[in-house]
Design a protein around this nucleic acid. Structure first.
Lengths: 98, 98
DNA sequence: TTGACGGTTGCACGATCATCAAACCATAAA
DNA sequence: TTTATGGTTTGATGATCGTGCAACCGTCAA
């Protein structure tokens, strides 16, 4: 399960990860809930598709996934993102609430 | 030459427009220079490719293009972007300077 | 009026992407 | 040990994307 180091976070990758409506919904929900089991997203898609979106977010460095028993806990990498790209995540979170 | 209304700016479209390294370079240069003839980007690509990137930025609402004689002047839509997505462009501009 | 200049448009090509389906893999419960 | 649960992985498919090439178009200068 790959997670990029904070120093390796790339702006194009992060922007791309945050350019899909489904992933923006996931991120918004993570911001509201703090953390999230993988399956708890409120979106009507096949579970493999959701898994794919979680992977894109994780590999871009937007989220961190930890294994807890047989569920995956997903969290936003708020501090890491703010270190590399100050204010970016906050602006996106503010924007995503229309 | 299509430009979306401010109210129609969509977060996924703007994020997507700002997820490509070439377009980020264009935007950074626009931010530094204020405005820009289309051909002045410092990037080694075919002119039709550059034109394509300008179109993506314009149609997402990131830039506005005006015709001035036989050159196109491209400008960032700073105020419009800040109205819809406060702080987003600033965060991206800060992030793009590594 | 002819030509050069700055850009756009149309087409094509390979790469990437979002989605689904089916198989698989751990872990926990029966 | 068997079964169910939560999620990943591996194709496959259609759509979109980034790029280059060639042709085109409007404007300005000879």
């Amino acid at each position: 399960m790959f997670h990029p180091a904070t120093a390796d976070l790339s702006l194009p990758s992060v922007m791309h990860a945050l350019s899909d409506p489904v992933r923006l919904a996931i991120v918004a929900q993570l911001a509201a809930a703090g953390s999230d089991p993988c399956g708890d997203v409120d979106v009507d898609l096949h579970k493999s598709t959701i898994s794919h979106h979680y992977r894109v977010l994780r590999e871009a460095g937007v989220t961190v996934t930890t294994v807890e028993g047989r569920t995956r806990i997903v969290r936003l990498r708020r501090e890491d993102l703010d270190t590399r790209f100050p204010g970016l995540l906050d602006a996106v979170l503010r924007a995503v609430q229309n």
